[in-house]
Design a protein around this nucleic acid. Structure first.
Length: 808
RNA sequence: GCCCGGGUGGCGAAAUAGGCAGACGCACGGGACUUAAAAUCCCGAGUGCCGCAAGGCACGUGCCGGUUCGACUCCGGCCCCGGGCACCA
């Protein structure tokens, strides 16, 4: 009798529909300990790509496993649906960004459901809908009240292709994160900022409290925050009354060796010091700096301003220069040049023939070269009252002295800067602020939220925010004085949306506040977050900042939002990242057509450990399809049953329980699902090898275990066979089987006998045999006698169940 | 330059107590079934050498060295690949 062939298309869609209509998990383990597994929400660009499939296959396997382990699992999905591509598509199609976005969401949601991912769709969050973005506005206002949101005029990164401002985190190597061929320009604009620097220290310190995060990500965040301890010093400007130049240094111990003060070309004091021609020269230095290819270091350049400042320690008169390598955004935008103890200062001062004076004598053992003096510890020389002091001590003593004298103090400086969130775009959350000629900057009152995006708007992709050109949006009355006022026309960076979306999942329909604190206490923090490494310093710093800020606003009680973070590897093809422009994309939809959703997602897990990059293999999915068909035939075959106890029963049971141990270990440990799946294949191979020697009972029992273990990886097949074999209900809510160590134990093991590390014989022994027994067996072995030559071994190394090694 | 990863068959990989290197799969070869093909099932396979054969010997986890009875695994030095940061004072 022939069983029907394995045709996933004949049953996957039906289960997909049933699971979409009624999530089989919902409420199954209510009241049990919770497990919040979260995958980074996607931008609805149009269709799922293989990266999504990998991300969701990992999350879904975990969700399903922990469900079966009896935990109350929260596994939600949503849409990061504001952003530029929607706006560009709208310009192209003469439609509204909303239409394009919502159509994409509908399509991608169907794809998610077709894959059978176990999301709780009753918690779906869509960030471009007013019911979500009004809480962006509400949170912004709370931040504003606390001084965590503020507006300032300053130099910002501008991407000409995006036609908008970018945050520092969105610029890498001088180019836009979305347009890697487009250098970012500097513009001076009035922009809104979130005060991430208020949490710089905590964001850095708490990285040590995130052992569940990859070291790589923590390192990247540490570098990004870039804390350095040092001192700020004031250098008086005698020609400018009581004005002074503030300088940050980590080497206050070298202050007596300063030869000049160097200003960043954009330094705000510069216009007071020099004439228009010199300002123009400074501007050119800055521009040349901005247009460098990534990784390129320009030659040090600068010019003398004609002014002098007084070294507060030595009272020496130092020339003030402008230097291209001094950064306005770091420290105070001005440094003291100590050429004897800093490589960059050395290059600069050598070029412009400024004096070079060592003031730290290297400790003995250092070669008497300048390079050695640049680094390393030593004793101060030529440093006034501090001469003779070890430089480590001087770091503290001189800062203390400066503070006592009132011209400086020890400080900490961060590389991290405040997060510029203004975007000159339409498709984003409107910033809820008004500008009144009488009252100034006025927040929109809470009861007027949300500030809605208009439906009819001219999108051009040029110039300032499209909202600025919409008079009905812009014109408004001041809520304080009633005078005619103007609305802020910029919208928020979409990274604001994604900074707290997973809080919203906990109480997605809350209509009076962003989320219900009780629901947050129930579900947060996220036990396991899964996503791409590309967000290591964007999203993953912003969301940590939001958590801390919301905590200080009394909205939640968390210090950190995510306990464990997993960064999945990239899928490449022909060695390159998949992209439409390279024409090397693999469409998950086509794979479903050809091999089914189970095979597609299972291959992605089988191809490599999930944290590793892997290159797409054309016939890999086919191999998994073949395996699943093997399972199908095995489950539905009318196998000849052995009478009574089958000769293969014990061996199959053993293999099944060994598999249970391995897969359980993979889920609790490293998530090397490739080996979990390999273990399942071994089990199926064992089935085939033992076919005909199995009792009906043992066969049914092991088949049941196989299906349960398959459920996290190929849920449709597991469910379909579960039903066909006459088991009731949803396999997803069946308890994960208990591992039985008795059944998994080998009846006997092969012991490898070595002499001086060379394999000389093999012999069978009970699995828990002790050293004396195995040693006795080995000596009794006739072959071994001549090799031992009657010698008593110096020592015997015994590894239970593995080997015995005689050391002669 | 600094900081993280990584380097194992034709390919993806496995080996998480320092203990049989290459599980599992892809591709490949052979056989069974078939009129035939596909599908399926079974078998083979790191490299080299010896042997009619069963089998045996040597070498083998980027390179060099060390520790150890024994090293993909630990230690020291180096090479290569990928990623992050980078004139941060």
């Amino acid at each position: 009798m022939d069983e029907p062939a394995y045709q996933p298309a004949s049953f996957e869609p039906q289960w997909a529909e049933r699971w979409a209509a009624a999530n089989p998990f919902a409420g199954a383990n209510a009241g049990a300990p919770k497990y919040y597994v979260l995958e980074m929400l996607p931008y609805p660009s149009g269709a799922l790509h293989m990266g999504h499939v990998r991300n969701y296959a990992i999350g879904d396997a975990l969700a399903r496993y922990f469900w079966m382990r009896g935990l109350d699992v929260l596994h939600p999905m949503g849409w990061d649906s504001f952003g530029l591509p929607a706006e560009n598509a709208a310009i192209k199609n003469h439609s509204h960004p909303r239409a394009w976005t919502l159509a994409n969401i509908a399509h991608m949601k169907r794809q998610d459901q077709r894959f059978g991912f176990s999301y709780d769709w009753t918690r779906e969050v869509t960030t471009c809908l007013p019911e979500y973005y009004r809480w962006n506005q509400w949170l912004f206002l709370r931040f504003f009240e606390r001084g965590l949101a503020y507006r300032k005029k300053g130099l910002v990164n501008w991407c000409p292709k995006c036609a908008t401002v970018l945050a520092n985190e969105q610029v890498a190597g001088g180019v836009c994160w979305r347009h890697e061929d487009t250098p970012v320009e500097q513009r001076e604009l009035n922009q809104w900022y979130l005060r991430t620097t208020a949490y710089a220290d905590e964001l850095l310190r708490d990285l040590d409290r995130l052992p569940g995060w990859p070291e790589r990500v923590r390192t990247m965040q540490r570098n990004w925050i870039g804390r350095s301890e040092g001192a700020e010093l004031e250098f008086a400007l005698p020609a400018h009354g009581d004005r002074a130049l503030r300088v940050f240094t980590t080497r206050i111990d070298t202050v007596y060796g300063a030869s000049a003060l160097l200003l960043a070309p954009e330094h705000p004091l510069l216009p007071e010091l020099v004439d228009a021609a010199a300002l123009e020269q400074a501007r050119r230095l800055r521009d040349r700096q901005a247009h460098l290819a990534p990784g390129q270091e320009p030659e040090k350049e600068g010019f003398f301003t004609g002014h002098y400042a007084i070294n507060p320690f030595s009272r020496e008169k130092l020339p003030i220069w402008v230097a291209n390598f001094v950064l306005l955004g770091y420290g105070t935008g001005a440094v003291m040049a100590v050429p004897a103890h800093d490589q960059r200062d050395f290059e600069f001062c050598t070029k412009y023939e400024l004096p070079i004076r060592p003031v730290v004598e290297p400790a003995e053992g250092f070669p008497p070269r300048l390079a050695a003096a640049l680094e390393g510890d030593g004793t101060l020389v030529g440093s006034g009252a501090f001469t003779g002091m070890p430089n480590r001590s001087a770091l503290v003593a001189m800062a203390t002295f400066a503070q006592a004298q009132g011209f400086g103090k020890g400080t900490v400086t961060y590389r991290l800067q405040d997060w510029g969130i203004s975007r000159q775009r339409f498709w984003g959350t409107p910033i809820p602020i008004l500008y009144c000629p009488a009252c100034g900057t006025v927040p929109v009152p809470d009861e007027q939220l949300p500030v809605l995006l208009p439906d009819d708007v001219q999108l051009t992709g040029q110039g300032e925010s499209p909202l600025a050109a919409d008079p009905s949006f812009r014109r408004v009355h001041c809520p304080r004085c009633g005078a005619e006022a103007r609305r802020e026309a910029d919208t928020m960076d979409t990274f604001v949306d994604s900074s707290w979306y997973f809080y919203r999942y906990a109480s997605p329909h809350e209509s009076t506040r962003p989320f219900d604190p009780a629901a947050i206490r129930r579900w947060l923090p996220v036990e396991q977050y899964i996503g791409g490494i590309e967000h290591a310093i964007l999203h993953l710093i912003y969301t940590r900042f939001f958590t801390k800020a919301m905590r200080d606003l009394g909205l939640c009680e968390l210090d950190e939002p995510v306990t464990r973070l997993f960064t999945q590897g990239m899928i490449t093809r022909h060695g390159a990242k998949m992209s439409k422009s390279k024409g090397n994309v693999v469409d998950p939809e086509e794979l479903i057509q050809a091999y089914g959703a189970d095979a597609t997602r299972m291959y992605v897990l089988f191809a490599a450990p999930p944290e590793k990059d892997f290159d797409w293999q054309e016939n890999g999915v086919e191999g998994i399809h073949r395996f699943l068909a093997r399972v199908w035939r095995l489950a539905l075959a009318a196998a000849a049953a052995a009478a009574g106890e089958g000769a293969g029963d014990a061996a199959l049971r053993r293999k099944a329980h060994q598999t249970l141990r391995r897969i359980g270990g993979d889920f609790e440990g490293r998530w090397h699902f490739n080996t979990s799946i390999a273990a399942l294949m071994e089990l199926v191979n064992e089935f085939y090898a033992r076919e005909g020697q199995l009792s009906a009972a043992a066969r049914a029992e092991c088949l049941r275990l196989l299906l349960l273990m398959l459920a996290p990886f190929a849920p449709f097949l597991a469910q379909e066979l579960w039903q066909r074999l006459g088991h009731a209900g949803a396999i997803a809510v069946v308890r994960w089987p208990e591992f039985n160590p008795e059944l998994a134990r080998e009846p006997q093991v092969e012991i490898v006998v070595q002499i001086n590390g060379k394999v000389r014989a093999r012999l069978a022994a009970p699995p828990d045999s002790d050293q004396a027994l195995v040693e006795g067996l080995a000596r009794a072995d006739a072959k071994l006698q001549p090799l031992l030559q009657g010698q008593a071994p110096k020592s015997v190394v015994f590894v239970p169940g593995r080997l015995i090694n005689f050391v002669l």
